[in-house]
Design a protein around this nucleic acid. Sequence first.
DNA 1: CTAGGGTTAG
Length: 562
Amino acid sequence: MFFQHHFLHSELSKIYQSLSRTKQLHALIIRTHLSHDPFYATRIVRFYAINNDICSAQNLFNKTPHRSVFLWNSIIRAYAQAQNFCEAQSLFKMMLRTETRPDCFTYACIIRACSENFNLGVLRLVHGGVIVSGLGLDSICGSAFVTAYSKLGLVDEASMVFHGIPEPDLVMWNSMISGYGCHGFWDKGLRLFSRMRNEGMQPDGYTIVGLLSGLAYSSLLSIGQGIHGFCLKSGFDFNAHVGSVLVSMYSRCKCMNSAYRVFSNLSLLDLVTWSALITGYSQSGDYEKALFFFKKLNMQGKMADPILIASVLAAVAQFANVGPGCEIHGYVLRHGFESDIMVSSSLIDMYLKCGFVGLGIRVFELMPERNIVSYNSVISGLGLNGLASQAFEMFEEILEKGLIPDESTFSALLCACCHGGLVKDGREIFRRMKAEFCIQARTEHHVYMVKLLGMDGELEEAYNFILSLPEPVDCGIWGALLSCCDACGNSELAEIVAQQLFDDTPEKSAYRIMLSKVYAGDGRWDDVQKVRSDITGDLRKMPGVSWIEASGNQLLERCINS
DNA sequence: CTAGGGTTAG
């Protein structure tokens, strides 16, 4: 008996178990009449959960009469991690009706589940429950709340929770710094970072990740470099998380040389680190390097995952080069990634941007399940290829399937209307977006509306449309109208619109050049001269460059427009 | 209890 206890203890303390091993251990525990012991039951429930067999976990839970808080936590966590929020929540409610009180880990698990399911209502209820149960100042619940409120975009509430805790621990500081980082409040994160160090708290890898994730523009490069220096001094650069966030920070700051230098100095390269580098190249437009490193990764016998494939396909789509796209499609089929929604959506996008409408539709039709992004990809691709009526059929299908269209759906539809000159449908869909789907129009929607009206010659209406918008109106919207004025040769309105733009953004020479083009179209050369002489600073536009690939040869076409 | 790469949006 003692031997068996000892053996089971050591087997159950191992972290990784396969499902068959779990079943063997479960059978052994039943044979030795230990299955009522909550300790063993808890372990086996966890192993079933790790191996995605929630059914068996639930069965064992049901059969265990004495349910410790650990057993409850294990089963609730199992459902929460399997994204089954409803079950997790109903088990939690069931637990509240027993005499076993939830502990800080139970609450933390539910709090996390609320944020992952974007359920603010339940989160607030749970927050009340936590305070009532006396865990209001607990640091484990506290950091879970800070993370949850930040994830839901309520950074101010997160910071209220944080500031309500008298002596925050390291996890708490980290949660708040990450919360700021997620929403780009890098300055607040940095201020908190210096405060925590003043209070004698030693930062760790989590702290650094939180700080760096908020740096998203190239103007923040020097701040990123400073934090990088701190990492080197403190020896955090060996951490895989810190390494990949450094790579992506440098990528976001448009500094691919540094991103590569960090990457090549890392001792442990995992898939995420590779992905950070490849995505960096892909998003900075260096599609050849993105593909080169994708191949290099494969040469090392490592397999890409859906996120990485989607990102590489996005790079291929940008350059409308179908050859490598097809190769990756082959890779997807060989490795069984075709059922992944993200992968299929980016395949659709790639084929449609390359002009292979049939192939894109085929991928779409073969998808086992689709989400709104899949539909958005296919709608925008159809619009791009001038197939507006098919795009609208897809929109109807979204509604039939009970999916909820989002901002991007309407962007794609409005874009399809612009391409097809469907003024009536565009007006109608814009109205429905606001009235029926309660989506607030964003700048891009307004730009499409102005283009749609303006290119149809309804310049007056487009102008009045902009005047009806709440201030401040984005310069992109006025710019769209100015380009319509140019296309229609209406110099009167062009002058009014351009004046507006000169007042708002005097530094942008592009609008002055556009106005001068309109004058030139009217033969008003004196006015051309006058507008051009107002241009200060750099008036030379970057020469436009375009490539075409024809039978394996890259032809470079260069057009220099002043 | 806290962390890294992300498909659609001419």
